[in-house]
Design a protein around this nucleic acid. Structure first.
Lengths: 167, 167
DNA sequence: TTTGAAACGGAACATTATTCTATACTGATA
DNA sequence: TATCAGTATAGAATAATGTTCCGTTTCAAA
């Protein structure tokens, strides 16, 4: 295993130029991060060294943010996905920061986006079932004091879900 | 690097029971898939062998679906995320399948969810900027013949985004 | 207490990542 | 055109890691 990893913590901000070979490497690693450097090299008609160096540079530049194992939610008894839309009463900086701090602390919240439109935030919540979502709603969201309005949209099936952003 | 990988293609459906050690392994690999088996073993007070075997079983059972390199969209000039809500004219099986096939073929579409509520689908679209989204809208979505209504919600900032589902 | 299956530890082995050095390439300059 | 500096590359050597093997332990059922 390469130890190029551990890119998670640092917020590298440098910008680097990516050529076609870098893009090709990214596309392959997005699909299978365990692909060996030699296999990557073979696909790109290169030797191991340049591929290794390119990956290292992209990790340090923050292009590759993380290597993650993707777990199937249904296999660990988290079969229900809910999109939860929230608008706040107070929109001041202080109130917003407080809300964000609270929301991000909930492990059920996989994603929290600040959005345009009638709502302020969209949460993607992953739970066991409807009962678990109800409890999340009452015991966690219900405890927050700055929520004006809330709306839940339930995910019936996942048609497509990818982490690939390079194309 | 372990070659336990390549879990992507197979839809393993077997269900296996996970104990606390398996959960601990999953949590660590969700954060850093490059962590070595020996490091994992040290954190769990185990030797390498049982950790290796547990990972292999979870891969074969489909609990670990994939190992992915996560790329920062802004670093590859894909800075705009849009949530695109779509309702169809025809909801028959044939029409639905056709729509799904077309939608999933667009690389800009990172995610497509079949949802409850007034819309049928939510798309998460990742593009360079507003102009690129406009072109996606006109040239790709605009070519589909089964769309009744459409609404775009723009992501202003990402407060939280994780792939961790194990907790 | 006995037995069998599963989990485990430690060492040996196989594969891969990583480093090192020399060479080939590229673009700019004179 | 010739020369130079910087970068990218290949190939071999080394270090680190994944993977297998085998004997031992654990633990629950009989």
């Amino acid at each position: 295993m390469n130890n190029l990893g551990n890119t998670k913590k640092d917020n590298a901000t440098e910008n680097i130029a990516l050529d076609e070979k870098d893009i090709a490497i990214l596309q392959l690693l997005e699909e299978d991060a365990k692909m060996t450097i030699r296999d990557l090299a073979a696909k790109l008609n290169l030797s191991a060294t340049p591929v290794y160096e390119r990956i290292r540079k992209m990790e340090q530049a923050g292009v590759i943010r993380q290597y993650a194992a993707i777990v199937d939610p249904s296999k660990i008894d988290k079969a229900l996905t809910v999109l939860c839309y929230i608008s706040l009463k107070e929109h001041g900086k202080k109130a917003g920061t407080k809300f964000i701090k609270e929301i991000t602390s909930f492990p059920e919240v996989m994603e929290c986006l600040n959005i345009s439109g009638q709502f302020d935030f969209m949460l993607k919540v992953q739970v066991k079932d409807m009962l678990a979502y109800h409890e999340f709603n009452v015991n966690k969201l219900g405890e927050l004091d700055n929520i004006r309005h809330m709306e839940s949209v339930f995910v019936m099936s996942v048609i497509k879900a990818t982490h690939r952003v390079v194309y």
